[in-house]
Structures are given as C-alpha cells and as structure tokens.
Write a protein that binds this DNA or RNA. Structure first.
Length: 573
RNA sequence: CGGGCUGUGGCGCAGCUUGGCAGCGCGCCUGCUUUGGGAGCAGGAGGUCGUCGGUUCAAAUCCGACCAGCCCGACCA
C-alpha cells in the first residue's frame, strides 16, 4: 500500500491521559481511537495487527482440531437463568429488554450457548469436540483503564471442549495449553503459565497465561529455586513456626484504651503482642450470613481465597452496624473467643498456636494467653493469606518473588456444571446417559496486542515482531518528488509484494525526518531507505527497527535480502 | 462506589485568581522556497470554551447541579 493513500493518523505529541505505554503508543501511532471509556475503534493498521493475531490463533486452534463457529452476542436471559448465572453475574453483565419486555444480555462468555448446542451431540462416539470463535464480548467493567488492556467491549477467542469423561478433558486441556504456548510465542510474547483461581467460572483447575509487565493488573508469584509459579490468588508459601511457649491455663483481660489496630497494640505491648502473636479477626457477610475470618496478626487476607474456599459468589466485609449487635464491640476490639453463634474460618497459620492476643469483644479490651484450640472453636481451616515477597517456597524452600503480569489467556477445566444445567448429555460406551465434560479457554485479542506493545517498545515507538506487524517492511522514499527515486521505490515495492512480503511504500511528500519518525513510531520491523544520493551508487539502506542497525545494500539485492529476513522471522515460529 | 485530578479548534496547552473582542504551538488548506532525522516565508480554514441552570449590563472566567474522561483504591470468568 501507498502510505499517501492510507489513514494512519499519527500524533506528534503524546496524548494526555494515556499512562500505559501500549495506550500511549497505539493512540500516537494511529492504531486505535477511543469512543468512550473502555470502547475503542480499531483504525486500519490496528485492524491489520488484530487480524494477524486472529490468524495466528486460528492456525493454532485448527492445529489442535478446533472448529470455528460464530455465536450470537445477544442472548435471551432465559439461557442464563437456566445455568443460574443471570443472577450470579451481577452488575458486570450488560442487560437490556427488547420491545416485548423480554430480558436479554450481551454475552460475557458463551458456556451456556455452547452447552445448548452440545445438546445435539448424543453419543460418545461423536466426541471429543473443540469449538471456538473469535468474537466481541461485553463486560460492564467498573473501571476500564490503560487503553485496550481493560475494556468493556473486546474481542475474545473463546473455545470449548466437549468430552465424555475427565480423561478426555485432560487431553483437551493439555492441547489448549500447548496451543496457547505456541500462540503467545508466535506473537513475540514470553507468556508464563501460572496456576490460577477459577473464580466465578467454577471448575476444578485453571491456568492463566501471564506476560510480565508493570502495566499488568495481576500479581504473580514465582520461585527462584524451582518452577513453581502461581497467581497470588492461589499462591502458597511456607509459614515459619512461631515459638509460643507453654500454655498459661486461661485467658486474661488486658485494658487497651483507644487501641484499634494490630500495629498500635504491638507498639503498646511489644513484649507480648507482636503482630505475629496476635489474632486478626475480620467479619464478613457470606451469602447474607455473618462469618468470622481469623488470620495471624501480620498476615493479610486474600479475599479471592476466601471466595474460593467457601464457594460463594456474594461476600463482602461487614459494616460496623452489623458487627456490633452480633459481637458487642466495634472493629478494633473484636475476637472469636467464646463465639458460638457464628461460623469461624481460620487460616492455617493459626493452627496449634498458644498465648496469643486478640480482641475481647468489649471496646478498649483485649484478651491475652489465648490458645486457639482451647479458647476458639474453629469450624473450618483454610489457606486464606496472601503470599509476600521473599517468603519461602513450599516445594523447594527457594525464595518467592512477586511481580505484576498481564493476563492474556486463561484455560479452565469446567467439568459438567454447564452441561448438566443445560441438559447436554451423551450416552457412553456402557449405554448410560452422562453429562458432557466441558473445558473453557479464552484469549483476549486486543489485550494480547497491547501486551506485545508493553513488552516491545522503545523511546521511538513500537517494535512489532514480524508476525503481528501491520506491515513487514516500509520503503521510505526520501524524495517522492524525484521521479527516478520514486520509481526505484515502486519497483522494490512491486518486487517485495510479488514475493509475498507485506510492504508499505512511503510516497508522501514529507521531509525525511517526518517519515523516519512515523515509521519508527508505528513499529514496522524493517525499513528500506531509498534516497537519490545512495541510489547514485546503486545502494539503498536497510534498517532493522529492533536495534536500529543500518546496512547499505545493493539496490538489486535488497528484495531478496528482505524476503529472506521476513521468511526467517515467520518460520522461526 | 470512595479519594485525587481534568474538560477551551484534530493533538498539546495558556487564559479563570481580579467577569469586558477566545488565544498560542503543532497539525490542516493555498502558494513559493526547501528536502538524509519532526523545514522556512506568506496567506487562509477551523472553536455551542463538556452540559444545563443561576448571578450580572456583561460569564471560558463567579455559584449550583449534572455529564464525560484520566489516575489511585474497592470491584473484576
């Protein structure tokens, strides 16, 4: 294509209000424009990049036997009511009514619709199946941010596996794991697979694909001694033993006027109330019911772990006016000693502990010499605490690191939750009717694009890998008004195009600086510079965007050289 | 939803304190010159100053409400 005929509205200045590198550079480079918070238009070169990512995804999905489908984005509420998610999805789902007053929603995901289709599979002989689509999803995010990294309307590749049993699901899951690894590698990303929480999807196992980036919104825990890696929501670490000393026989009250925090109590009584010797008592409302959540004083609750442990959707911290009638004190003086009427869930870090300090359920008083087993009736033990930087790995005793990542993909083993709800049954080899075992697998397409930019840019702009770049090579004609120079540019363009290389001919009547700056901003991996001076010696220049290295090449040889470079880059996948 | 900030030609901003002709840079259009790292000169086009209401002889400017956007947090398959 001739640049002079394209719509590539590059901006000379950084846009205000664009912090994340991908947001800033995709805007400046003329790839995207914002319509509203969380809704972006893809401009021509942005669409080309997205099509490249789509193409890689399709190739890899087809390679594992996936069949592409296309499902409606607008769903009747009835379908979601059948699975119970019409209520469970809450405010994140866009809902609307048609003219007859019937409820509908914009699809956030398609387990229900797929499970309905799966109802047309009757025999295990027709399994396994892998169905996928690349389609727009809608989620009413409370806070869209960072350009296309977190939006309310986006393209997702979602696929679904159907199997007769768990062993089949394991195979489909592994196939997707391999396909995702290949997809992200081909997009130039170093995506890491980490153990993850299944959240509201349900299911037995899930793995996220994370790209390390400060722009990411998830926290990832990795070990420096082994290959342990997990989302913070699932990560565990060694809890060092604390020496509590002998039991004191019974609890003792301690006047603590005005003290409301773990820190303040530790400062007031450093001898016996260090944070690790206190019990942190939190009160949550779980499905409408007050529940006490206990952790060691120096540990933080990771709410997702509580959600996963209890298997509930509705959970929030209790308000003080709900707590006082139940426990008789305000937050700051709460404890679980003697509490019989509320469920108590405690973190493993408190197991077997003695001589601890906790609130007395009486304002301005605490209790000392508290033994967890003796004085507190824990109904359920669980891993509830968040891992911190520098703690020990449970597998190898190595040191844990915590860093930010962008979630570009997530794969789930769902089981039969949706097939049961939607009536997707097959007959197995024994002739018994059995629910289809499903898996669900997603990739955020624009988020993957943005992750590539986050991962690969410099002060000049984006550095696309050949595989997803809007063009493979840009031919920068320095004097587009000089017929001979332009003719050489056009000849190279025609040769490259004929050889299957996607070339962009910069024939604009701009000065060289403008053309160089734009080419670097939009990140095309190779640039051929055609100027009258070098041309007189039969030479052009070939510049590699990644390192900005430039070599002079004979005009007659440059096409072959670029074809070789591009093909090498594409086949390296 | 809580906290902070911002809304003025396409982009980046000034003007607001102290009310009085709506400005600057870039970009855009025309012409001439220029052409290896975001050119120069000359002449132009383009703005309901986020919206609504109030105060006033007079509002971009003061007051109120609302809307939108950005950042932090909460939230988030």
């Amino acid at each position: 294509m001739r640049w002079s005929e394209l719509f590539i509205p590059t901006l000379r200045d950084d846009p205000a209000h664009a912090e994340a590198a991908s947001h800033r550079l995709l805007l400046r480079g003329g790839f995207i424009r914002q319509l509203a918070a969380g809704h972006y238009s893809m401009l021509p070169i942005g669409q080309r990049v997205r099509a490249k990512v789509d193409g890689i995804i399709r190739e890899e999905m087809d390679a594992i036997g996936g069949q592409q489908v296309h499902l409606p984005a607008l769903h009747p509420a009835e379908v979601w009511r059948q699975s119970g998610r019409w209520e469970a999805m809450g405010e994140e789902m866009f809902r609307l009514e048609d003219r007859k007053g019937v409820d509908h929603c914009l699809g956030m995901t398609h387990e229900e619709v797929i499970a309905l289709l799966a109802g047309e599979v009757f025999s295990y002989r027709d399994l396994p199946q892998i169905w996928y689509q690349i389609q727009t999803k809608f989620r009413d995010e409370p806070r869209p941010k960072a350009g296309v990294l977190r939006v309310r309307e986006f393209t997702m590749k979602d696929s679904y596996s159907l199997d007769v049993d768990q062993a089949g699901l394991d195979v489909a899951f592994d196939l997707h794991h391999q396909a995702y690894t290949a997809i992200f590698r081909r997009c130039g990303l170093e995506a890491m697979d980490v153990v993850a929480s299944s959240g509201a999807m349900g299911g037995s196992e899930s793995v996220e694909f994370m790209v390390p980036s400060p722009a990411g919104e998830d926290w990832i825990v990795t070990c420096d001694g082994c290959d342990y890696r997990a989302n913070l929501e699932r990560a565990v670490s060694v809890t060092p033993e604390i020496e509590d000393g002998p039991s004191q026989g019974r609890t003792e009250p301690l006047a603590t006027p005005g003290i409301r925090t773990i820190r303040a109590l530790a400062d007031a009584h450093p001898d016996r109330a260090a944070p690790e010797r206190q019990i942190k008592t939190l009160v949550y409302v779980v499905d409408g019911k007050l529940t006490l959540v206990l952790l060691r004083g120096d540990h933080e609750l990771l709410e997702q772990k509580l959600v996963d442990t209890l298997g509930v959707a509705n959970l929030r911290p209790a308000h003080p006016d709900e707590i006082r009638p139940a426990l008789g004190a305000d937050p700051g003086s709460l404890g679980a000693v003697g509490v019989q009427h509320l469920p108590i869930i405690a973190d493993h870090g408190l197991a077997g502990r003695r001589n601890l300090v906790t609130g007395a359920n009486r304002d301005d008083w605490h209790l000392t010499s508290v033994d967890v087993g003796r004085d507190i009736e824990v109904e359920r033990w669980a891993d509830l605490r968040g891992v911190s930087l520098g703690e020990q790995c449970t597998r190898c005793c190595g040191t844990l690191d915590v860093w930010r990542g962008i979630e570009v993909g997530h794969i789930f083993k769902l089981g039969d939750r949706y097939s049961r709800a939607m009536g997707a049954m097959v007959q197995n080899a024994q002739g018994d009717s059995t629910p289809i075992v499903m898996g669900s697998y997603g990739i955020g397409v624009e988020r993957t694009m943005a992750a590539v930019v986050e991962h690969s840019h410099d002060r000049r702009g984006i550095v696309w890998p050949v595989s997803v770049s809007p063009y493979h090579v840009v031919i920068t004609v320095l004097r587009a008004d000089d017929p001979q120079t332009l003719a050489v540019g056009e000849r190279l363009y025609n040769e490259l195009t004929a050889a299957g290389v996607e070339a962009l001919l910069d024939d604009r009547p701009e000065r060289p600086g403008v053309k160089f700056a734009d080419a670097e901003l939009i990140g095309v991996p190779y640039r051929i510079t055609v100027g009258p001076r070098k041309l007189a010696e039969g030479l052009v220049e070939l510049t590699t965007r990644a390192d900005m290295g430039t070599v002079e090449v004979a005009t007659v040889e440059v096409t072959e050289r670029v074809v070789r470079l591009v093909n090498a880059a594409l086949s390296a996948d």
